[in-house]
């Protein structure tokens, strides 16, 4: 079975927000909620970098572990989904989530949270009918054999979505070709001695 993962190649992301827009569009997400966001660090400085984040469909998902209603479940594809009928809007998943993925509509008094909403990897969620599913969770592109629209639309292919192994392979190739002393996003202590990727780029 596939293990679905997102991966954003921060060296490619140009902060165009195409993924954010694609997601909004594909899932008809309600007003005030934005399942995907682009974060830019050190904007305008030499080491500026951007990365697109949404739910990362964690293996050992913290949201799942803390939810008082136990409304999360993992699909066979490793996608973390939740049942809005069970959600009580307590916000615990937001406290625990490493990526700030869960969001809440705030139409009630005293800022009381509505039902949690987050990225579904375009895999919909539990519902009686297709219409209800779309209404509550947005598109189910996975059921149609398609990958999440954000990654499909990404103009620089910075944002990758798919089976973890394939995503990793693509990224590994990129690292080898462009060369990077420590393989990007890692902290290789032996970078100077062990810079195979760097060499490959130099010689190729």
């Amino acid at each position: 079975m596939a293990q679905m993962k997102f991966m954003c190649d921060a060296e490619r992301c140009i902060e165009c927000n195409g993924c954010v827009t694609a997601c909004k569009n594909a899932n008809d997400v309600e007003w005030g909620i934005q399942r995907r966001r682009v974060v830019t660090l050190n904007d305008g400085e030499a080491d500026e970098m951007s990365i697109s984040v949404a739910c990362m469909h964690c293996d050992d998902a913290p949201c799942m572990a803390v939810c008082p209603t136990d409304c999360f479940y993992k699909t066979d594809d490793g996608i973390v989904l939740h049942d809005k009928d069970l959600c009580i809007g307590c916000g615990y998943c937001l406290y625990a989530c490493p990526f700030g993925a869960p969001q809440f509509p705030q139409q009630n008094a005293f800022g009381e949270r509505g039902k949690m909403d987050k990225c579904t990897f375009c895999a919909g969620g539990p519902a009686e009918s297709k219409e209800e599913e779309y209404e509550k969770y947005g598109a189910n592109r996975i059921a149609e054999g398609k990958l999440p629209l954000c990654a499909e639309m990404c103009s620089t292919k910075a944002l990758l979505a798919g089976d973890a192994q394939e995503v990793a392979d693509i990224f590994r190739q990129r690292v080898v070709h462009r060369g990077h002393e420590d393989g990007a996003w890692s902290n290789n202590q032996r970078a100077s001695a062990d810079n195979l990727a760097y060499d490959a780029a130099r010689k190729g």
Binding site: E15, N17, V20, G32, Q34, R37, V38, V39, T40, L41, N42, D43, G44, E45, E48, I51, V53, P62, A65, V66, Y95, A96, C97, P98, F99, G100
Partner: peptide, 22 residues
């Protein structure tokens, strides 16, 4: 110079204390 494209977001990129809380 931190930017977040989400309108009302006051979150950093990675919520490191989330795991501690969990």
């Amino acid at each position: 110079n931190y930017r977040d494209s989400r309108a009302d977001s006051n979150y950093n990129l990675i919520n490191a204390s989330g795991e501690t809380w969990r």
